[in-house]
């Protein structure tokens, strides 16, 4: 994750915040990611940014009625027509959305 940020910024920068959007089907545990992220961010020269998670839902499209809605429980049926034949549109993602670079570092440049 820090490598992606470093690639986008060109070099490690002191960050105040990192925002990650995360879906329930991403297979990524926010707690585990936070636990690992903090010490590695310091060591890699990114400071101690706040890691903020924006939790997304599982959005599905029903093959029978075409309805799009959030699937609250995995495997649940369509609330409109009762079908379980639904394609997952989103909810698998875990994306670094943005970072905020510390103002003091900005001023020093």
């Amino acid at each position: 994750m820090l490598a992606i940020i470093e690639r986008a910024l060109g070099a490690p920068r002191k960050l105040s915040r990192v925002t990650v959007s995360i879906g329930p089907l991403s297979g990524v545990s926010p707690d585990s990611l936070s636990f690992c992220f903090a010490p590695i961010a310091i060591e890699a020269g990114f400071g101690s940014p706040e890691l903020v998670f924006r939790r997304k839902g599982i959005m599905v499209e029903c093959a029978s009625c075409g309805g799009v809605e959030e699937m609250v429980e995995p495997g649940a049926q369509c609330s409109s027509c009762g079908s379980r034949d639904r394609s997952i549109l989103s909810g698998m993602e875990c994306t670094v959305e943005s970072v905020e670079i510390e103002d003091r570092e900005e001023a020093g440049r």
Binding site: V28, V96, E102, D103
Partner: peptide
Amino acid sequence: MSGGPSRRVSIEKPVMTRN
């Protein structure tokens, strides 16, 4: 942690990009 305004940079890349 910053006390003032900071510059936001959009990244929009999957965490699993390298893999």
